[in-house]
Amino acid sequence: MKRFLLSALATTTLLAGAAHAQDYPNKLITVIVPFAAGGPTDTVARLVGQSMSKSLGQQVIIENVGGAGGTLGAARVAKAAPDGYTVLLHHIGQATSVALYRKLPYDTLNDFAPVGLITDVPMTFVAKSAFPAKDLKELVAYAQANKDKVSYANAGVGSASHLCGMLFMTAIKAELTTVPYKGTGPAMNDLLGGQVDFMCDQTTNTTSQIKGGKIKVYGVTTKTRVPSLNEVPTMDEAGLPGFEVAVWHGLYAPKGTPQPVIAKLTKALQEALKDPNVVTRFAELGTEPVSPDRATPEALGKHLKAEIDKWSPIIKAAGVYAD
């Protein structure tokens, strides 16, 4: 009798999940971006979300839940109902937070259902327009000689700009004054205003400012030059051998979200990444969508695990913690 009841319960649950998936979505979907509005991850989310709305037939809205290096927004989604109406768009910080925070309010690998990878965004090393160094070698020399005077802005502990800055300071063997913000949007505003000296930020946030001549650029953090900024050398070419940081973005739902719902979200994501407007805007911002085989739950799950394994020993060896 007990076995029959368990079997009946399982069947009822499956049928309920299938019915929910068939009806999904029947209301707006919220994408949580765990950083401030106006930053690079926010830009990616708004472009992709707008396109996903078309194929899903429901409005996709962006909600910015910043703070604690992206972990507040991630925790919000981890605790959300697993119905596909609250999802997370996060970057490399989803992997690095595992080592940066010794007590996370969720299990990164087990509390989320991957939907798919979105894009790999290069970063640029930029400075205020009045910064004296004319190239990266001069910037490094100036920073080493004035490490107590120069200021490095980032989007908060655990952010991509924080990680890039940490690697930069390790590479030049100098601890610089860091100024954390609640997102790269506010940090960029102060860089433009000359309140801070330099920062490392994603091309989605810097390309227009670079091309407008509003900030100085010293290098891109990829192995090869970025087509939209082809005149800008790589950090390796400019004088920091082997310096490389790429910021990947992924889409997640809460653990327990029905597989058919995940499948619908994945399909909508893949269609968005083929949208000519998204492709064009990504190119203008110095990036491009991932290939369809990477915009899948399997690819994101595998990549997340690999990135955790890659960055955890580096962060732990540096002894850098956010809590």
Results as ranks from 00 to 15, higher is better:
4 F>R: 10
7 S>I: 04
8 A>Y: 02
10 A>T: 03
11 T>L: 15
13 T>E: 15
14 L>N: 07
15 L>C: 11
17 G>F: 04
20 H>S: 10
24 Y>P: 01
28 L>M: 11
30 T>I: 07
32 I>M: 05
32 I>C: 07
33 V>L: 12
37 A>K: 13
40 P>M: 01
44 V>C: 03
45 A>Q: 02
48 V>N: 11
49 G>K: 06
54 K>H: 07
62 I>P: 00
65 V>N: 05
66 G>I: 00
68 A>D: 09
68 A>N: 14
72 L>R: 12
72 L>M: 05
74 A>V: 14
75 A>P: 01
76 R>I: 03
77 V>E: 11
82 P>T: 13
83 D>Q: 06
84 G>D: 11
84 G>F: 12
86 T>L: 05
91 H>R: 02
92 I>M: 03
92 I>W: 02
96 T>W: 07
97 S>V: 01
97 S>R: 07
100 L>M: 14
107 D>L: 15
111 D>H: 06
111 D>C: 11
117 L>R: 13
117 L>E: 14
118 I>E: 10
120 D>V: 03
123 M>G: 08
124 T>C: 05
128 K>Q: 14
130 A>I: 08
130 A>V: 06
132 P>C: 12
133 A>S: 04
136 L>R: 03
137 K>M: 03
140 V>W: 11
145 A>S: 13
146 N>T: 08
146 N>D: 05
146 N>A: 14
146 N>R: 06
148 D>C: 04
150 V>P: 03
152 Y>W: 11
154 N>H: 15
161 S>R: 10
164 C>F: 15
164 C>M: 13
167 L>P: 12
169 M>L: 01
175 E>T: 15
176 L>A: 06
180 P>F: 12
181 Y>F: 15
183 G>P: 03
187 A>I: 04
188 M>K: 10
189 N>Y: 11
191 L>Y: 05
195 Q>C: 00
196 V>C: 13
197 D>W: 07
202 Q>H: 13
203 T>W: 08
206 T>I: 03
208 S>C: 00
209 Q>L: 11
209 Q>Y: 15
210 I>N: 00
211 K>V: 01
212 G>K: 09
212 G>E: 09
214 K>A: 05
215 I>Q: 04
215 I>D: 03
217 V>M: 05
218 Y>T: 00
220 V>E: 05
222 T>W: 09
226 V>Y: 10
230 N>E: 15
237 E>K: 07
239 G>T: 07
241 P>D: 07
241 P>E: 09
242 G>Q: 14
243 F>C: 06
247 V>C: 14
248 W>Q: 03
257 T>E: 11
261 V>T: 13
261 V>W: 01
263 A>L: 12
263 A>T: 15
263 A>V: 09
264 K>Q: 14
265 L>H: 10
268 A>F: 12
269 L>K: 01
271 E>K: 09
272 A>Y: 10
272 A>V: 07
273 L>Q: 10
279 V>P: 09
279 V>E: 13
282 F>H: 06
286 G>L: 08
287 T>W: 09
287 T>R: 11
287 T>G: 09
288 E>M: 06
292 P>N: 08
299 A>K: 08
300 L>T: 09
305 K>G: 11
305 K>C: 09
306 A>P: 04
307 E>D: 14
309 D>H: 05
310 K>H: 14
311 W>Q: 04
316 K>C: 00
319 G>P: 05
321 Y>Q: 14
